[in-house]
Amino acid sequence: MRNAVRIMRLDMRSVNTRSSILFIYLITDLVTVALAFSPMQKTAFLVGFGGLIGGSGACLITPFIASGQRGLDAFYALLPVRRRDVVNGHYLFAVTLGGLLLLNTWLIVIVLHWLRPTLFSADLPILIAFALVGPFMLLLMSSVQYPIVMRIGYEKAPYLIFLPIVAAGLVSGYIAGSSTDLLGPRGVFSARGYPLLGLSLAGGAAVFLVSLLVARRLYGQRDL
């Protein structure tokens, strides 16, 4: 576990992910706050939320393109860590990004609520809960991406890697399209959605774990 944490920290440092993610969050946060004062009102939050998921999703792949468009496999292979530690580290990196995303989403919600208490009013607890959708999406993306990229590497399948991001976009689009009033009493993002959210989160966690096990197996056999 200690080695996995160290690898996660290397992933974080790999392309200045730490500062780039803070930068992405800062920009998105400011835009969201600005939009909230525009006629968009509540929808501003959804736009910002989407931006945050997209930005975080892009960061997921950075450790795999960090060195001359290639991963850090050779570098990590020289460290006194087992391959499974490397895999664990990458997955821990995804979890960490998810955590950062969640914290930032809560930050936005709270700041918006503080600036314009009338905006969300009674919907606030629902939004706090639904901020979990962000990390959920990230975990799903990494669950698909990571085993692929750890088996064949980014340079051999650059477009395959973006599939999960496209899929995430489609899912978001479907959710948005299936309900005219996302945040209203009958919308998906409402109290009605709690059971759905709970199930999704449990499913996502299961998928993530299976993906981790698959990736460990694939990476263990890979020629670097």
Binding site: R13, V15, L78, R82
Partner: peptide
């Protein structure tokens, strides 16, 4: 597994880009 545990006693230079670009 034993060899990986001994990496501390091993110094390696590879004929490839190794570290992150930045």
């Amino acid at each position: 597994a034993d060899r990986i545990a001994l990496r501390d006693s091993l110094g390696v230079q590879l004929d490839t880009t190794l570290y992150p670009d930045y």
